[in-house]
Computed example of a mutant assay.
Amino acid sequence: MNVGAIALPQLPPERFRGVVEAAEEAGLEELWLWEDCFLTSGVATVSAALAWTDRLTVGVGLLPVPLRNVAIAAMELATLHRLFPGRARIGVGHGVQDWMGQVGARAGSPMTLLREHVTALRELLAGERVTVDGRYVHLDGVALDWPPTAAAPVLVGASGPKTLRLAGEIGDGVIISAGNTPDDVRAARAVIGDSPLVVYLHTATGPGAAERLEGERVRWGYDTIEDRAVSGDADAVAEQVGRWAEAGADTVVLQPAPDDPDPEGFVRFAATVATIRRGTPAAAR
């Protein structure tokens, strides 16, 4: 199981490079980014993060498909995979419907759009020439001149059972948001089968951790934060993360609160948690 961390888009873009470089220097396995309306672009930030680093895997979870023509999405992802082979993990999803409505991109059937978009996207990334006339996706003999030279997995974000079932069917992996308990992860795993599963996990450490997690409870409308978050020092968090791993997560991505006072410190903390999970002795950390 991998352990990663999220660099939240609430961080001003000019602060982003410091977080990325801290993650690389600390040996973090995966740094994940969001494309939330109306904060930062997923493609611009992942491109910059990959260019600033040599080893770090950078994920985007997720790119809302209503905002992109599938041909543009395929061109963007193919370019990333050819520039930085094996270092990008890209997820897509139907997006937050209220946000999609704000920009005039809300689909009558988000599930139909997601199916059509992901199916065509994977075919384009595989180097195929695609013709399709769907409800939302229309392509006439489109093929990429520069498709990826190796596999370019497309992960799909999901929440409810119907979307989870679809994501497990059409994607190369599934992403589920923070706030899911270990029991929720087990239920998701039962729906998606063997598909790789990325799980975000609310995490807080250091002074004010309890207050930040209470803020997350209120922000997301949870009745309780218990079993929805982890906190403590690196050893404590590493032990708690094991519960989500045992429930079926292949990658657990630690998600800080937006008011975390030290984003650079948080990614270093996540790297330490990952080291502990790998079983590295304390003297070697």
Rank of each mutant, 00 (worst) to 15 (best):
V3P: 03
I6S: 03
I6W: 02
L11S: 05
P13D: 14
R15A: 13
V20D: 04
E24Y: 10
A26Q: 08
G27P: 08
W32F: 05
S47D: 03
S47G: 07
A51G: 15
T53F: 10
V60K: 02
P64I: 09
L67C: 14
L80N: 06
P85M: 12
G93R: 01
V96Q: 13
M100K: 07
G104E: 11
R106C: 06
V118R: 04
E128Y: 03
E128S: 03
V132M: 13
R135G: 14
G141Q: 02
W146Q: 13
W146N: 11
A150N: 03
A152F: 04
V154A: 06
V154Q: 00
V156Q: 05
S159R: 14
K162P: 12
R165S: 14
G168D: 06
G173V: 03
T181P: 01
V185M: 11
R186D: 08
V191D: 01
I192K: 01
V199S: 09
P207N: 06
Y222I: 12
D223P: 10
I225H: 02
E226Y: 06
R228S: 04
D233M: 05
D235W: 10
Q240M: 09
G242K: 09
L254I: 04
P256C: 10
E264M: 10
V267R: 07
G279D: 13
R285I: 08
